[in-house]
Design a protein around this nucleic acid. Structure first.
Length: 670
RNA sequence: GCGCCUGUAGCUCAGUUGGAUAGAGCGGCAGACUUCGAAUCUGUAGGUCGGGGGUUCGAGUCCCUCCAGGCGCGCCA
């Protein structure tokens, strides 16, 4: 709706400038006037054209003006201030069209859905499978999941992957713990997994921290770590078996933790398969063949295969510093012949784009209650799995500290000649979640004087310092349940629990998505447990209010159908309600509702789910304001009431959509 | 040393590719429940947008510089 009008305005403006001045101009960017009295869409290009045309901006606007209309959905156009060109939309028409769109009565306009260029792959979560997930992992998962939902909403085919580093040191550390600190073999650990009285992921959380303490005092144990790592990589013996048990079980638990907050996956890609299916070998051959890497024959990297990185910028003549003799290089293969982490990541990303000429085997790993299967890579897979990979574009949700490594991966693709794919590989970088000093103290952590002055304390799995995801979710549900019980003590237990879960999830997800990616979140229970103000529950409550109006109305008018509301409101009534006394308030709400698709596009383009979150909140505020000013069920005029119900329905459907995009469900009652 | 990021109200943060009067939540103060439930709404106080220069019709936004803070820069993952 809104997008189509914007597109038309842009092209029409170009045509008008061409017709009047014979000038080719780029499509103008559109702005929004500060209030509805000035219109809904503005163009500021006349200011820029002023210099080129040597005329006053306002004069330019005056000449173009007659050529701008008619445009479908635009009522009139006017000049304001020194040369703003402002468009006024046809309120009744837009409202009607939007109502039909949101009610599913009209198909989505073709122009508004982007061309399907191919599959978009979103990799997120990617937690080391050696211990329970913590809040930082939740931020990753929520960002990735929300972003994937945005892409799907705009018509892109999306594949969600979760990378499992099951052969790395982190798993090895826990294996060391079981083998040496606890003298447990595969059988003992298996029975620990089966033991329902202890949480395996929590057990590993503590064990991992204990192992790290021991490393500091016990050099033998530190040496054993390398032994374990080697055994795991080579898939030999009890240690490898232990690693397999640990990583599989922890992966499964992570899936269930994430499922609690409505996050799902399609494929788990394991590092073990990247190693054992010789993915790296293929990538290595490719890189050698294309000259992307070279063997160092001298210097500190002697015997390593390295990749040269383009130096940031040639230094301008400083005679004292020796001129960049040491170029920036990154070791890809160690002198002992083993591949580094980056090398494996390069192989993985080549596969993502279908550039490796190899594929994994796949086996079902997990089944959600609705029957959807999560697949996992395997040496020998099922005969007929779904197709994975072969993406046109890929997003990797990874925290900002790994920016350098991600740059190297992109650079490798470029060095191999895959510049287009390199450009379509996006590092979706976000800042970490730390603990506020107060929160750290609540967890009875000792803080140095310097720590107390900092705005946040870094979490550390090695020290067992952090907040486990499931603990936080449990705490949120508990608090939500208290709130629910305080409000509707009569409703049944199951519904109360279901509501509490939805409310807790929405509080958590909104909390994690409302901050922009580059903001460090200093986690604090007070903020995260808040249900008032700019929070998920506020948004849910808004939707519940709107639904209540229909519930009540339905009690009086038994065969009432919201979708048919518009039939009772004729065009002139619609127009006069939207433009007459107090009409601007309704119109502001409708206009905001019409911008959902535009906001989603902005969110995608900026890779910033917070844009949608902020929009949803603003929209909920606008609706609550409307709600407060109109007693809809008491409205004496029938036609007026019908009109108000049209607005409510429109707003509700828009809000439902926005919340669904953030993975937030709406309880029946609150 | 090199690279990246951040600095906006008491606190936590928004601020669309440079646009019209710099916003929100929390906290403070003052108000609004005869139920479409107040998990709400209204009003109010609070700002040298880190400092300085520049670009232009116009700068919180772009450029330079300085200050303060964070992160990264391994044959670790």
């Amino acid at each position: 709706m809104f997008l189509e009008i914007q597109n038309q305005i842009r092209t029409r403006f170009c045509q008008a400038v061409q017709a009047v001045f014979g000038l080719e101009v780029a499509e103008p960017s559109l702005g929004f006037p500060p209030n509805a009295e000035l219109g809904e869409i503005s163009i500021t290009s006349c200011f820029e054209l002023a210099k080129q045309l040597r005329q006053a901006p306002r004069k330019i606007a005056e000449q173009i003006l007659p050529k701008l209309l008619p445009i479908d959905g635009v009522d009139r156009v006017a000049i304001a201030g020194g040369g703003y060109v402002n468009f006024f939309l046809d309120r009744a028409r837009l409202t009607k069209g939007l109502f039909r769109l949101r009610s599913g009565l009209a198909a989505k306009p073709a122009e508004s859905t982007p061309v399907k260029a191919g599959k978009i792959l979103v990799e997120h979560t990617s937690i080391n499978p050696n211990k329970a997930a913590h809040i930082g992992h939740l931020r990753n998962a929520v960002l990735g999941d929300t972003f994937a939902r945005l892409l799907k909403f705009r018509g892109h085919p999306v594949e969600i992957q979760n990378y499992i580093d099951n052969t790395g040191v982190q798993v090895a550390d826990v294996v060391v713990g079981f083998a040496r600190l606890e003298n447990k073999g595969p059988e003992a650990v298996r029975s620990l997994v089966r033991d329902t009285s202890t949480r395996f992921d929590y057990y590993c959380w503590d064990l991992y921290a204990r192992v790290f303490q021991r490393y500091e005092t016990d050099p033998d144990l530190a040496a054993f770590r390398s032994t374990a790592l080697k055994a795991i990589e080579e898939d030999k013996g009890d240690l490898a078996e232990l690693a397999e048990i640990v990583s599989s079980e922890i992966s499964r638990i992570h899936l269930e933790t994430m499922l609690r907050i409505n996050v799902r996956y399609q494929l788990l890609v394991q590092e073990s398969e990247i190693l054992r299916l010789n993915f790296w070998k293929s990538a290595f051959e490719l890189m050698k063949e294309k000259g992307a890497i070279r063997l160092e024959e001298s210097g500190k990297n002697k015997g390593c295969w390295v990749m040269a990185l383009p130096s940031p910028e040639g230094k301008n003549g400083d005679p004292d510093t020796p001129n960049d003799n040491e170029e920036d290089v990154k070791v890809i293969v160690r002198s002992n012949g083993t591949v580094t982490y980056v090398g494996k990541d390069i192989a993985y990303h080549l596969w993502k784009f279908g550039l490796l000429g190899r594929d994994f085997g796949y086996k079902p790993f997990y089944r959600y209650a609705d029957g959807q299967t999560v697949w996992r890579t395997a040496l020998e897979g099922d005969p007929d799995p779904p197709t994975f990979g072969n993406a046109n574009e890929a997003f990797a949700v990874i925290d900002t500290r790994q920016s350098y490594v991600q740059d190297v991966v992109r650079e490798a693709l470029r060095a191999l000649g895959y510049t287009a794919q390199s450009d379509r590989l996006h590092h979706f970088a976000y800042e970490v979640v730390g603990l506020s000093p107060r929160c750290a103290q609540e967890l009875s952590l000792e803080l140095s004087a310097k720590d107390q002055e900092r705005s946040y304390i870094e979490v550390s799995g090695r020290r067992g310092l952090g907040i486990k995801a499931d603990d936080l979710i449990d705490r949120l549900i508990e608090k939500a349940l208290q709130e629910v019980q305080a409000r509707e003590p009569s409703s049944d237990v199951q519904e109360r629990q279901a509501s509490a879960r939805m409310i807790a999830v929405s509080a958590l997800r909104y909390f994690l998505v409302k901050y922009t990616r580059r903001t460090i979140i200093a986690f604090d229970f007070k903020d995260a447990l808040a249900f008032e103000g700019e929070t998920g529950p506020y948004l849910q409550y808004t939707a519940v209010r709107a639904m209540n109006i229909f519930h009540k109305f339905n009690e009086i008018h038994s065969n009432f159908e919201p979708r048919r509301l518009l039939e009772a409101v004729n065009a002139t009534q619609l127009l006069s309600s939207l433009t007459g006394e107090g009409g601007d308030d309704f119109w502001d709400l409708v206009l905001l509702a019409a911008q959902l698709e535009m906001v989603v596009d902005q969110s995608i383009a900026a890779e910033e789910p917070a844009i949608l979150a902020k929009y949803s909140f603003r929209f909920a505020q606008a609706f609550n304001n409307f709600y407060h000013h109109h007693r809809i069920l008491q409205e004496p005029s029938l036609t007026r009431q019908q009109f108000l119900l049209v607005i409510v329905h429109l707003a509700l459907r828009t809000l439902e959509q926005a919340l669904a995009l953030m993975g937030i469900e709406i309880p029946a009652r609150m």
